[in-house]
C-alpha cells in the first residue's frame, strides 16, 4: 500500500509543480458553465416554472458542475495504456515490484485530484455568481463518497479500453463512444430526471448513471434512497468491471511479446 501512496504522491506533486498549466487547463469549465447557464436559464424561463422534476435552475447548475468536474478531471488513461501496450514500454512497468493496474490507479489518481480540485473551484465561482450558492455542506459527504465510486468506475473503463490495444490497432473510437455513453446515458449534459421514464429505466440498468448522475444528483438532492441505490449500483458495477479488467489484464499478459529493448 505504501508504494502506491508514494506513486500517488509523486504524481500529485508533479501536477502541482505547474500551477499555471493546471489553471489554464481548468479554464474550460468557466466556458462550459457559462453556456450551460444561458441554455438552462432560457429553458426554465420558457417552462415558466421554478423547478423541473424537482430540480431548480440553481440545482441544475450545481449538478452540471459536479458532472463536468468529474468528466474533465477523470483519469485519461485509455490512450496512455494503449500506447504503452503498442510501443512496448509496458515492459518497463511490468518488471517493477508493483502491480501494473494498481500503479495506473495510483498515478491516475495523483493526476486527477488536483485537476478536479481546480475545476470544481473555478467552476464553483462561476456557478455561484450566476445561479446562487452551493448546496449545504451537509450534502457534500455522500456526494463525494459517490464521486469516489464513480471515479473508480471511470478508471475501470479507461483501463479496459487501454488494454484493448492487445486486440485492436486503434482504441480511440472505443474511448469516444464510452465518453458519449457517459454524456447520454450517464446524464452528464441533461439530468436523467428530465428524460422520458422508459429511458430513465434503461439508464439505471447500465453503469453510466452511477458514473455521473448518482454523485451529481446526490450533491443537490441528498436523498437516502438515491444514496443507497447509487452505492449499490457502484459496488455491483465495480465488481463486474473490476473482474473484467482482471481477466483482460491476464489475457493481455499471455499475448504480450517483448523483443529485446
Amino acid at each position: 500500500m505504501k508504494k502506491y501512496l508514494a506513486i500517488l504522491k509523486i504524481n500529485l506533486l508533479n501536477s502541482l509543480a505547474y500551477p499555471a498549466e493546471l489553471l489554464t487547463r481548468a479554464l474550460v469549465i468557466v466556458l462550459f458553465m457559462w453556456i450551460f447557464f444561458q441554455l438552462w436559464r432560457v429553458t426554465f424561463a420558457a417552462a415558466g416554472t421554478e423547478a423541473i422534476h424537482g430540480l431548480t435552475l440553481r440545482d441544475t447548475m450545481w449538478y452540471l458542475l459536479l458532472a463536468e468536474t468529474l468528466e474533465l478531471g477523470r483519469p485519461r488513461l485509455a490512450r496512455l495504456i494503449s500506447q504503452q501496450v503498442k510501443d512496448g514500454s509496458i515492459a518497463y512497468l511490468l518488471n517493477k515490484p508493483y502491480h501494473f493496474l494498481f500503479y495506473q490507479l495510483a498515478s491516475g489518481l495523483g493526476d486527477s485530484l488536483p485537476r478536479m480540485g481546480m475545476l470544481f473551484l473555478l467552476g464553483g465561482v462561476v456557478v455561484w455568481a450566476l445561479a446562487g450558492p452551493p448546496p449545504a455542506i451537509a450534502h457534500w459527504p455522500p456526494a463525494f463518497l459517490a464521486l469516489a465510486g464513480a471515479w473508480l468506475l471511470h478508471f475501470c473503463f479507461n483501463a479496459l479500453i487501454g488494454l484493448a490495444a492487445f486486440l485492436a490497432e486503434e482504441v480511440a473510437p472505443f474511448e469516444w463512444i464510452y465518453q458519449k455513453m457517459v454524456f447520454i446515458l450517464g446524464g452528464m449534459l441533461i439530468p436523467l430526471d428530465f428524460y422520458p421514464a422508459w429511458l430513465q429505466t434503461v439508464c439505471r440498468s447500465l453503469p453510466f448513471a452511477y458514473m455521473m448522475y448518482g454523485p451529481a444528483r446526490l450533491f443537490v438532492r441528498p436523498e437516502t434512497t438515491v444514496f443507497v441505490q447509487t452505492l449499490l449500483g457502484q459496488i455491483l458495477w465495480l465488481a463486474v468491471l473490476g473482474g473484467g479488467l482482471a481477466l483482460a489484464f491476464g489475457s493481455g499478459m499471455r499475448r504480450l511479446a517483448i523483443n529485446g529493448g
Partner: peptide, 9 residues
C-alpha cells in the same frame, strides 16, 4: 475504425 468511430461518436 477512426473514421467510422467518429461518425458513431
Amino acid at each position: 475504425s477512426q473514421a467510422i468511430g467518429m461518425i458513431l461518436n
